[in-house]
Write a protein that binds this DNA or RNA. Sequence first.
DNA 1: ACTGGCACTCCACCACCGAGAGTGCCAACA
DNA 2: TGTTGGCACTCTCGGTGGTGGAGTGCCAGT
Lengths: 338, 338
Amino acid sequence: MLDDRKLTILRAIVTDYVSMREPVGSRALVERYQLDVSPATVRNDMAVLEEEGYIMQPHTSAGRIPTDKGYRMFVDRLGTVKPLSGAERRAIETFMAGAVDIDEVVRRTVRLLAQITRQVAIVQYPILSSATIRHLEIVTLSPERGLLILVNSTGKVDQRPVDLGNAPDDTLADLRGRLNAALIGLAPSQVVEKAETLVAELPDDVRPLGAAVVSAILELVTADPSTRVVVGGVPNLTRFSDQYESTVRPVLEALEEQVVLLRLLGEVAGTGDVTVRIGHENPYAPLRSTSVVASGYGTEDDIWANLGVVGPTRMDYPSTMAAVRAVARYVGRFLAEG
Amino acid sequence: MLDDRKLTILRAIVTDYVSMREPVGSRALVERYQLDVSPATVRNDMAVLEEEGYIMQPHTSAGRIPTDKGYRMFVDRLGTVKPLSGAERRAIETFMAGAVDIDEVVRRTVRLLAQITRQVAIVQYPILSSATIRHLEIVTLSPERGLLILVNSTGKVDQRPVDLGNAPDDTLADLRGRLNAALIGLAPSQVVEKAETLVAELPDDVRPLGAAVVSAILELVTADPSTRVVVGGVPNLTRFSDQYESTVRPVLEALEEQVVLLRLLGEVAGTGDVTVRIGHENPYAPLRSTSVVASGYGTEDDIWANLGVVGPTRMDYPSTMAAVRAVARYVGRFLAEG
DNA sequence: ACTGGCACTCCACCACCGAGAGTGCCAACA
DNA sequence: TGTTGGCACTCTCGGTGGTGGAGTGCCAGT
């Protein structure tokens, strides 16, 4: 159905439209892409491509622009991987160096991704499912208010206020000792299993407080940190479209909704490799006029979370995909090393 | 120079322009604001107001719009405080209830402020200068890597990786004991004073590690958490202007620069009451076409940080100022109570 | 199967015009 | 002196019509 030349033409249309941002006609095509055929021939091929739904005309007698289906074909079969430039590689390395905690890693990643793709970047906080509890502390702030602190093997520190109800210091110390002894080295799932019997086995005088603390621990341990996302590069939305109100506004609104972004990343990515959702393929209606390029990141056996970019369907897919892939890999390695 | 009627007219022009978003002419003015004089009289007054720089015409024979100076006059002398609606009061109360940690308080505040002002909101993390050290912990992650954890009296938990360099467990325990004994109850400034002698007094075998840990403590203690800001309500920028590229883009870019926002808030607010910077009064050039309404928040004797909104110069100052003031007060109280 | 030619379509651009809104000024008036 | 009605003037905005150009589809010829 689609012979080589038609595919070449489709590729040329996509490439040209992405860089020129204008509908592309048959003459420009043969001139800029050495097709060695006449414009008339190209027109015939374009008629077929249009019939098949890969390209369309904004109006009669304008050039053609790719449809979502056209971009999809391009991404799946026509795009050649565009390796990162040396400067980009170096940027990735230097950008991350010196990030001390997880917050900073995420913040820098989002900045980095926005900068090299020149799109809006989204990074989800990593969930480190293999993490185990390393240390547990109960700090007294006042006779009534305490702070439960949990440190896991990756160095993440979680906290939560607990109501101490005037419990005496030695009760507190007793509880802390028991909890540390019982829970250190356990993974989240094991903590959940063990929680009930742990409370049951506490001495009567410690049990009320113990129950409160354990339930706080459970909250912390089951709370999914990857339910947080960070967004960056919003100014790049400028390059989206000329009609601000109708196209940019819904995207801006979507970007403020953590829940939406999480669902989006979840449905688009989820694997270790780069995935692309083009226009109407997107699960979320207000983003139907955008494309999402996303990838999971983590180690080879363990995906922790997702990251990606949102941009106009008319985007440079090869470069964007290469950048997302590179950043995802680098962040995965960086976090794995600690 | 400016008699009562001229001021009334100026007030009417500001009010009308803010709500109608169109240059306002003499006829509309007398019709909508019962001025009891003829349009011709109003025109004479407007000519004076224009000469004095309070209003201007976008072009000959359009209506007048306020200048920055006009808004300034309005804010200083003409605006009447517009109390919050009951719904808004209730929104403030319910929005904050149930926020567990400082991150969440800040995130909710920014959302709240963006929602009731319908502008872009900026909230700076609070610095609690009266906080003292409550607990200090060194958790071993691996023989080489450790985590220093600092809890202060407000319940804030800070962390920082430290290089343990294979120090034996009992050295670590010894150091932890000494540091806890020496530092608990101290304010940041006191910690800084005491640091040097503390290291000097350590036994020889503990000192190298101790020096590293103490320097980490100093970093944590002097690091200003209020160097972080959170932004929300960006979609409200839609209502800024029709010319996207020229006016919205620079604002978007400014909003991504933490440093800029901090300087902005710092220079605009800094006191316990609401401050307004209008257009060219702004210290930061790309925001010369916007107004900033900001306020410090905290307790009566102690300002912790600032919050505010950024919007078009053509904004509803009375409502916005009332909202910023109310939110600042509420957050201050909320945090003070714990 | 490809090509050159040709008639056709439609948009983008420009000039032009008229209506409407608003002004400044002036002479008249309280 | 301050206010008012009248009037000529200016400028924007919306609609109209014409033109050039880009691009197409189709067809006959190679």
